[in-house]
C-alpha cells in the first residue's frame, strides 16, 4: 500500500520544510518589496497544501 511508504514521505517532508524555510528567508531579504512579499505568500499557500497532504502523513507514520 502506497500510504505506508514512510521513508519516501519523510524525504518529501524534509524537502517541503526546506522550501518553507527558504521562502521565509526570501521574505526577510525582500521585506517591503511587494513583488517578493506577495509571491512568497503565494508559495507558502502551496506549501500549506503540501504539508496537509504529505508532511502530516509522514508525521502520523511516525506517531
Amino acid at each position: 500500500m502506497i500510504g505506508t511508504n514512510g521513508d519516501l514521505l519523510r524525504q518529501m517532508k524534509t524537502k517541503i520544510d526546506g522550501i518553507e524555510n527558504l521562502v521565509h528567508e526570501l521574505q526577510l531579504l525582500g521585506g517591503g518589496v511587494p513583488a517578493i512579499e506577495k509571491n512568497a505568500q503565494c508559495i507558502l499557500s502551496f506549501t500549506h497544501a503540501l504539508q496537509f497532504g504529505i508532511s502530516d502523513i509522514a508525521e502520523v507514520e511516525d506517531l
Binding site: 500500500m1 500510504g3 511508504n5 514521505l9 497532504g53 502523513i57 502520523v60 506517531l63
Partner: peptide
C-alpha cells in the same frame, strides 16, 4: 495516493 490510501486507524489519528 498517500492520503487516499492511508489506513483508517491512521486517518482517524490524523
Amino acid at each position: 495516493p498517500f492520503v487516499e490510501t492511508l489506513p483508517r486507524e491512521k486517518l482517524r489519528r490524523l
